[in-house]
Nucleic acid binder design. Structure first.
Length: 417
DNA sequence: TCTGGGGTCCTAGGACCC
DNA sequence: TCTGGGGTCCTAGGACCC
């Protein structure tokens, strides 16, 4: 196996860029990217954090994930726009379609990132770097937003390369360039080194990616276990994982969680929120033609204490009511009576729903499944709000939280590239 | 006017069995 | 009565990504 050529393509300030382009296309004269601005949630409903910042906003030291409140304090004239996930899905798709013109082997890693295997494309295209510039400029011209492209011989180096200088840039980190371009960077810049790992490494005087690369692997393994081996390899540019089309990969779980605009203080309201979360989870589960054997509920209190509770169930299910019933049991066992800020429902241990085994005691589940499917098809034809349970009337609880992903699903990123 | 939501993977401890 | 170890399954929590 010869050397590979891998591209990593990353949208610059994705949500914000996409919103800016959308506004310009609809006659807006101000380009959000040229002023301090962020995409962020609404503090009124307790969703007030920064999701994406413009480059001018970055100059005010505004960080992704910080509160809108503190971002405004750093820059009073900051423009805040709400997220629009439907738009992002469209942009993401259009972006991927262009990439697939350059190689058949394209992997979507997240809503705004793709890997592309350019090995063997040399017969069609003169030079990878030259082609990367072409792709970048085409995306800018046709779709209106800029990307960074990183090029190397594997995924980790391509990804690290695309993170170098932004925006609208092409970078390479070929193996012979690792020392010059990557080892000087602070340790937290390395993929998979988050706050906890950075702290542990820095406490042992490992402050740069280069220092980690040169550290003794046995020592790293001793205090960071398998994760240490992973990041040590990344620091050395070692990665043999393949770019894989994300059609066939098994989805592991489906979840929906929400921060409630008010503190929930009674079980009845909590159960209603769980129902709204379960409606989304269960309909997505049925849409993907899976059943689940594990249900978990997570909870965050008004004091930001988080905990979770899960249970394996006897036979796999996909009914809204059945999942909701388990979720309520789990909540009742978990909840100690504190005011609840956030609730989540997640199903996992999925299996195909075609050869479902139903025990005799669960025979009315068949009827229930027919009801679910009927409701699913009504919502498909007339919109998600066409039917909802009367228990939500005047409850102050949104009857369906989160969104169903109506386009084809792509599996989310994992730590192993 | 405080702190999102969607994922994946790993680890540790206890139960249980041989 | 005591001492043991290995294997699997289950659960909770933590770390990381975007």
């Amino acid at each position: 196996m010869g050397n590979r050529i891998i591209f990593h393509i990353d949208v610059n300030s994705a949500y914000l860029s996409w919103e800016a382009v959308h506004r310009i296309q609809h006659g807006e004269t101000l380009d959000l990217r040229t002023v301090p601005s962020v995409v962020g949630g609404d503090p009124e409903t307790r969703h007030g954090i920064v999701l994406t910042k413009s480059i001018p906003a970055k100059k005010y030291n505004i960080q992704t994930g910080e509160t809108i409140y503190s971002a405004k304090a750093k820059c009073p004239e900051l423009i805040i726009v709400p997220p629009n996930y439907g738009l992002y899905m469209q942009c993401s798709r259009a972006f991927g379609d262009i990439l697939r013109e350059y190689s058949p082997l394209v992997e979507q890693y997240s809503i705004d990132e793709y890997f592309m295997d350019f090995t063997n494309m040399g017969r069609l295209y003169t030079d990878p770097v030259e082609t990367a510039y072409k792709i970048k400029d085409r995306i800018k011209e046709e779709l209106g937003f800029t990307v960074n492209i990183g090029i190397s011989t594997n995924k980790i180096l391509a990804k690290m390369a695309s993170e170098l200088k932004k925006p609208d840039k092409v970078h390479t980190i070929f193996p012979y360039e690792i020392a010059d371009k990557m080892w000087c960077l602070p340790i937290e810049e390395l993929f998979m080194v988050g706050r906890a790992t950075a702290k542990k490494l820095r406490s042992r005087a490992i402050n740069t990616i280069g220092a980690l690369a040169h550290a003794d692997l046995k020592m790293i393994r001793l205090f960071l276990k398998s994760h240490g081996v992973l990041v040590w390899n990344y620091a050395n540019g070692n990665d043999i994982s393949a770019v894989r089309e994300n059609r066939r990969t098994m989805i592991k779980g489906i979840g929906n969680s929400t921060t409630i605009p008010f503190d929930v203080e009674d079980a009845t309201t909590a159960h209603l929120v769980l129902l709204s979360l379960t409606e989304t989870v269960a309909s997505r589960l049925r849409q993907t033609e899976y059943c689940a054997r594990l249900v978990s509920v997570s909870l965050r209190t008004n004091e930001f204490y988080s905990c979770s509770h899960q249970r394996k169930i006897a036979s796999a299910i996909d009914c809204t009511n059945a999942i909701h019933e388990v979720a309520c049991e789990l909540f009742d066992e978990l909840w100690k009576g504190e005011p609840v800020r956030h609730l989540g429902v997640r199903v996992s241990e999925l299996c195909r729903n075609d050869f479902m085994q139903l025990s005799l005691f669960e025979k009315d589940y068949e009827k229930q499944r027919v009801v679910d499917r009927t409701i699913d098809s009504i919502r498909e034809r007339f919109g998600p709000d066409a039917v909802f349970r009367s228990s939500f009337l005047n409850s102050g609880v949104r009857f369906r939280s989160g969104g169903t992903v109506d386009d084809e699903e792509y599996p989310m990123m994992s730590s192993i590239l």
